[in-house]
């Protein structure tokens, strides 16, 4: 489902070149639960951004669902992001002036769905994630765990094939982090491919496939 071959990403800072990704080959099949770990600066986020089409590789090919997605136009890539990929960030990235329900509704608005369908879907997802009583609260009135659950609801409302989480528990305490992990695993069980970047050994260890990165390369890949 995800096939990366010889993917490189080089950043130039002044006259210095940083190889954030160095000829990465990686194949992930549908429904896998993968963790990516490694020291800071090893290229984990860069990998995730390229898989999520937020960033373009400098060389190599990337097939998503057997389609060369790096060759797509900007608006086609946006569509793939919208319909096939869900992002979860360490800092939640909720829009503070919108309520929980409205934040969750955003992808549906971008997709151009009708108001009635949007409301039905948002309600369903709020019930599933146990956020029904928080629907009309703004992010500032929610706890960290609740915020991340809203963000997960938003990322998954269009049933993406891949869920990409960059340190989803990085800003959460142990207990709420565990709740978020449980939610991610529930989505995995429902058939979504989940890729989690994390520094947390315990969380990383729970994944069925564990990838270690160092200096832009994959140094370990255990199942």
């Amino acid at each position: 489902m995800i096939q990366l071959s010889a993917i490189s990403r080089v950043f130039t800072m002044g006259d210095q070149e940083v190889r954030a990704l160095n000829h990465i080959d990686l194949t992930i099949t549908a429904g896998e639960y993968v963790s990516v770990m490694g020291p800071s600066g090893s290229g984990k986020s860069t990998l995730l951004n390229i898989v999520g089409l937020l960033d373009q590789p400098d060389s190599g090919t990337y097939l998503l669902e057997n389609r060369d997605v790096t060759a797509l136009s900007e608006s086609e890539q946006a569509r793939v992001r919208r319909e096939r990929i869900g992002f979860i960030f360490q800092s939640f990235h909720l829009i503070s002036r919108l309520t929980a329900a409205e934040n969750i509704e955003l992808p549906l608005i971008l997709e151009g769905l009708s108001v009635a369908e949007r409301q039905a879907r948002v309600k369903a997802v709020l019930d599933q994630t146990g956020l029904a009583d928080r629907a009309n609260h703004r992010p500032a009135e929610l706890s960290g765990g609740q915020r991340q659950r809203v963000a997960i609801a938003r990322a998954t409302i269009l049933n993406p094939a891949v869920l990409l989480a960059d340190e989803p528990t990085g800003n959460l305490d142990h207990k709420t982090g565990a709740e978020v992990v449980a939610l991610l695993e529930k989505l995995h069980h429902a058939g979504t491919t989940v890729i989690v970047v994390t520094h947390d050994r315990e969380l990383g260890g729970r994944a069925h496939r564990r990838i270690q990165m160092r200096d832009g390369e994959i140094v370990e890949d255990e199942r």
Partner: peptide, 16 residues
């Protein structure tokens, strides 16, 4: 900026 980045991650096009 962050909001715009988020919208892009959620699949908003440049045109949107």
């Amino acid at each position: 900026t962050a909001e715009i980045g988020l919208l892009k991650a959620l699949g908003a096009t440049r045109k949107n």
